[in-house]
């Protein structure tokens, strides 16, 4: 486990860090954090249980157990990463292990929105580029500098134009990814909507 965990806060425009590659398509949230670890009323201790069953199966050879990866912060994955359950425990576990950004071929929808909501930018790249990074990273240390504003990933040897949803990018750059306060700003509009929705007129209050 890493040193004391501090959650991200405010504007996020630059993420620099070492890459950790996890190879495989359709890695689901049950694998990221098995259901038995969801028996908790806070997220604090999830970091140590990330990929618990996969790690046990691989007996120390899982990327999240390798000594050389212990300071990694940028996760490189393949397609449909985070499919399955909506459990935010999955990105929370990754974040608490030390992950600050994810680059992949594609992400499952709910996992993606959960990452954005807790301050983990997710970028996409073509299959070819991801495989290139993973191949390189397999044998060598890869330190990447991510410039969110220009959507660039730079290292000594590899440079990439990263894709990220425009709405997500703006939220990180402006620091409004923690949505609650932005949503609350429209209090009057919310009150009007509550008043106007047809079905709230013919349904008794719960």
């Amino acid at each position: 486990m890493k040193s004391e965990f501090t959650p991200p806060i405010g504007k996020i425009s630059q993420i620099n860090g070492q890459c950790i590659s996890l190879i495989g398509n359709d890695i689901d949230t049950d694998r990221i954090i098995p259901a038995r670890f969801l028996k908790c009323v806070n997220f604090d201790s999830l970091g140590e249980s990330v990929f618990e069953d996969d790690r046990k199966t691989l007996k120390g050879r899982h990327p999240f157990d390798l000594e050389e990866n212990k300071n990694a912060t940028i996760l490189i994955v393949n397609s449909n990463f985070g499919c399955g359950s909506s459990r935010e425990h999955a990105p929370q576990a990754l974040m608490r292990w030390g992950i600050k950004a994810i680059i992949g071929e594609s992400f499952a929808d709910i996992f993606y929105s959960n990452c954005i909501a807790i301050g983990i930018p997710c970028f996409t790249l073509t299959k070819k580029s991801i495989q290139e990074i993973q191949k390189y990273n397999f044998s060598k240390f890869l330190f990447l500098e991510i410039d969110l504003k220009n959507s660039l990933g730079k290292s000594k040897f590899l440079n990439f134009k990263l894709e990220i949803k425009e709405s997500s990018k703006k939220m990180f750059l402006s620091g409004e990814w923690d949505a609650t306060s932005t949503l609350l700003e429209n209090e009057n509009l919310i009150a009007n909507k509550y008043k106007d929705l047809p079905y709230l007129k013919f349904n008794a209050h719960l």
Binding site: P91, S113, S167
Partner: peptide, 21 residues
């Protein structure tokens, strides 16, 4: 109808709304 994560559960509780594409 759709599934949401815990941060969005917080947003619905606090505002009855969520941010979504």
């Amino acid at each position: 109808a759709f599934g949401i994560g815990t941060s969005q559960v917080r947003d619905v509780l606090a505002t009855q709304t969520i941010a979504m594409n």
